[in-house]
């Protein structure tokens, strides 16, 4: 028996990277998983296949988390397939990096829409079935840069700092209904998103990591499983750093 046997989960942005690792890790613990994606249908199908190969249950569902209508469909479809939603992992995120002085309004809006508004919309939508059930766990993907700041990422950092504040507020509002809300703040994790960074930026970041190496998506996924499961039954409103000690 896994830690999450009998539970069902939605993971947003689960077609690749950290989201995929989270979806697989939740499934390994026995959870049924709705693998959400916005664009990469093939990759999402691949995530589903990887889960099914290990005997898990999953299905892929397209939804843009910044659209209230899409999010409603995502939640409705998951309720239809699984009958309940016990776990929400708000992972979907994009970057449109630029120096503050060069950042276009559109770059700001796009990142805030997906990375912050998306968390709000998904949280609001799942809170309803979770409140009725008097239980549920929500795990939001923040980032260490949301705590420490990062040159060239004003939009991303503002969104991630916002996610931390939203996590605390949702935790306070929903605690009496048995719903816990926490965040995980990854540091420098090897994914497509970080592969795009210039070499000198990567080297500069490495020098700031006490554990001296990049993180793996699995490291983040393990922390998410912990916060999604009863192992963390007395923890809510917290941000758990998974960053090799980068920000303390």
């Amino acid at each position: 028996m896994g830690k999450l046997t009998g539970k069902s989960a939605i993971v947003t942005g689960a077609s690749r990277g950290i989201g995929r690792a989270i979806a697989i890790a939740l499934a390994k613990e026995g959870a049924k998983v709705a693998v959400n994606f916005a664009g990469s249908e093939d990759k999402a199908a691949e995530t589903v296949r990887m889960i099914e190969e290990t005997g898990g249950e999953a299905f892929a569902v397209r939804a843009s988390v910044s659209s209230q209508e899409d999010v409603k469909q995502l939640v409705d479809e998951t309720m239809e397939r699984f009958g309940s939603i016990d776990i929400l992992v708000n992972n979907a995120g994009i970057t449109k990096d630029n120096l503050l002085m060069r950042m276009k309004e559109e770059e700001w809006d796009d990142v805030l829409s997906t990375n912050l508004k998306g968390v709000f919309l998904c949280t609001k939508a799942v809170a309803r079935p979770m409140m009725k059930k008097r239980s549920g766990t929500i795990v939001n993907l923040a980032s260490v840069v949301g705590v420490a700041g990062n040159a060239g990422q004003a939009n991303y950092v503002a969104a991630k700092a916002g996610v931390i504040g939203l996590t605390k507020t949702a935790a306070k509002e929903l605690a009496t209904r048995g719903i816990r809300v926490n965040a995980v703040a990854p540091g420098f994790i090897t994914t497509d998103m970080t592969d795009k960074l210039p070499e000198e930026v990567k080297e500069a970041m490495m020098s700031q990591i006490p554990l001296g190496k990049l993180g793996d998506p699995v490291n983040v996924a393990r922390a998410v499983v912990f916060l999604a499961s009863d192992d963390s039954a007395y923890i809510t409103g917290q941000t758990l750093h998974v960053d090799g000690g980068m920000v303390m």
Binding site: R128, M131, K132, E173, T176, R177
Partner: peptide, 9 residues
């Protein structure tokens, strides 16, 4: 306030 939200639900 949350009770009222639930009542409406």
């Amino acid at each position: 306030s949350l009770d009222v939200v639930e009542l409406v639900m």
